[in-house]
Amino acid sequence: MSFDPQGGRAFGLLKAQQEEGLDSINQEFLADPKYRDEEDLDSKLEAFKKKYMEFDRNDRGDIDMMGLKRMLEKLGVAKTHLELKKMMSEVTGGATETISYKDFIRMMLGKRNGILKLILMYEGMAKDDGEKPSGPPPKKMIADLP
Rank of each mutant, 00 (worst) to 15 (best):
M1V: 13
M1E: 08
S2E: 12
F3V: 11
D4T: 10
P5S: 05
G8D: 03
G8S: 08
G8H: 08
G8K: 12
A10W: 01
A10M: 03
F11Y: 03
G12N: 07
L13G: 06
K15H: 09
Q17P: 06
Q17G: 13
Q18E: 12
E20C: 15
G21Y: 07
D23L: 06
D23T: 05
S24T: 07
Q27D: 01
Q27R: 00
E28Y: 05
E28I: 08
L30P: 10
L30A: 02
L30S: 01
D32M: 00
P33G: 00
R36Q: 02
D37S: 02
E38H: 08
D40Q: 11
L41I: 10
D42R: 05
D42M: 03
S43H: 10
K44T: 05
K44L: 03
K44I: 02
L45E: 06
E46G: 06
E46D: 14
A47P: 14
F48Q: 08
F48G: 12
K49Q: 12
K50W: 07
E54V: 04
E54I: 04
E54R: 10
F55L: 02
D56C: 01
R57M: 01
N58D: 13
D59K: 13
R60S: 14
R60G: 14
G61L: 03
G61T: 07
D64F: 03
M65D: 05
M65Y: 03
G67I: 05
G67K: 14
G67Y: 12
G67M: 06
L68A: 02
K69Y: 06
R70Q: 04
M71H: 04
M71K: 06
L72M: 05
L72G: 00
L72P: 00
E73H: 08
E73I: 01
E73M: 02
L75A: 02
V77K: 15
A78S: 14
K79F: 09
T80P: 00
T80L: 01
H81E: 09
H81F: 09
E83H: 03
L84T: 02
K85W: 01
K85D: 00
K85T: 04
K86M: 03
M87T: 02
M88E: 13
S89K: 14
S89M: 03
E90A: 05
V91Q: 13
T92C: 15
T92P: 14
G94Y: 05
A95L: 11
A95F: 05
T96S: 14
T96E: 13
E97N: 05
I99E: 03
Y101I: 00
D103W: 01
D103F: 00
R106C: 04
R106N: 12
M107F: 04
M108L: 04
L109C: 11
L109K: 08
G114P: 03
I115H: 15
L116P: 08
K117Y: 06
I119L: 15
L120G: 09
G124A: 11
M125W: 02
M125C: 05
K127Q: 09
K127S: 13
K127V: 11
D128H: 07
D129R: 09
G130H: 04
E131G: 01
K132H: 11
K132T: 15
K132Y: 09
P133N: 03
S134A: 11
S134H: 12
G135C: 13
P136M: 12
P138L: 14
P138T: 13
K140H: 06
K140V: 11
I142R: 13
D144H: 12
L145E: 14
P146D: 14
